[in-house]
Every structure is written in structure tokens, then in C-alpha cells.
Simulated scan of single mutants.
Amino acid sequence: MTYIVNDNCIACKYTDCVEVCPVDCFYEGENMLVIHPDECIDCGVCEPECPADAIRPDTDPEAEKWVEFNRKYSEMWPVIVTKKDPLPDAEEMDGKEGKMDLFSEAPGEGG
């Protein structure tokens, strides 16, 4: 099993999860995070830290498509290990539908 980040993270990008990850498997895009599925050790400590409920186990019924999505972008984006402020409209965007339209492939700063 592994954990994934889904589209609930888009336009929010809370980073509470990266501080608790013991293996630094989070990667930062411009407006979301992903987890490298081969680096995740399935500890689950990140899942309850996400205010947007964007981190799910790969056993979740909707998670299958997100495993490869997370893999793809974790290989393109820089690792993130330090908590940062969420995006400016995070509270407003939390829970919104159709956020894939807002997704950016651009990398974040990492760090």
C-alpha cells in the first residue's frame, strides 16, 4: 500500500503533511503536492494532517488513477520537507469541485 494526493490539494497546497513525513516523499508543484508511491513507507502519519482531506490510501476506491499521477509529478517536481504557508485562497478553494481545471504542471520551489 501507498498513499496518494488527489485533486483536493489543488489550489490549497497545505503542507502540514510534509513536516510529519519520516521519509521525505512529498514533492511540490506550483499549486499542489504529490507523494512518490515508491518512496512512501505506508506509515499513514500524513493523512490526518491534511486539512483538505487530499491524502488517501491507494486502497481508496478513487485512488487508483492518482497513483500514476503522483508518480509522474514526483519525478518532475522538487522534494519538499519544510512546512510553508498554504496558497492565498486555500480556505476558499478547500472542498471545491472541478479543481483539475486549475492544475498546473509547473514545479514548486521545493525546500
Rank of each mutant, 00 (worst) to 15 (best):
A52M: 07
D89A: 11
R71A: 12
N31R: 08
T82R: 10
E75C: 10
M1T: 09
D58H: 13
C17F: 03
G95L: 04
P57R: 13
V81Q: 07
T82M: 05
V23D: 06
M32H: 15
D53L: 14
D85R: 13
C40T: 07
M76H: 08
K96Y: 04
E97G: 01
I55Y: 02
E92P: 01
E19R: 03
P57L: 13
D7K: 07
E75N: 15
L33C: 14
R71F: 08
C17I: 09
E49C: 09
M76T: 11
E39V: 09
D94T: 13
L87W: 07
T59P: 14
D89E: 13
M100D: 03
D53M: 12
G108H: 12
N70V: 03
A90W: 09
N6P: 01
I80Q: 03
V18R: 03
Y73H: 11
R71P: 02
C17D: 00
C50R: 04
Y27H: 15
K72F: 09
D16M: 03
A54H: 05
D53I: 13
S74E: 06
E105W: 00
E30V: 11
W66R: 03
E109P: 11
V18L: 09
F26L: 08
T59A: 14
K13V: 08
N70K: 05
D16V: 00
E62K: 08
V79K: 14
C9V: 02
I35M: 10
W66C: 04
E19I: 02
S74W: 07
P88I: 10
L102M: 14
I4M: 03
F69Q: 07
D42M: 06
D24R: 10
G95W: 02
N31M: 13
G44P: 00
V34K: 05
L102E: 09
I10H: 02
K84D: 04
G98M: 08
R56C: 13
C9M: 05
T59W: 11
I41A: 01
V67Y: 01
E92Q: 13
P78Y: 10
Y27C: 08
E92T: 12
A52N: 07
E91Q: 08
I41D: 10
A90D: 02
W66F: 14
M93N: 15
M76Q: 15
F26W: 04
Y73F: 15
E64C: 01
D85E: 15
E28N: 13
R56F: 12
N6A: 03
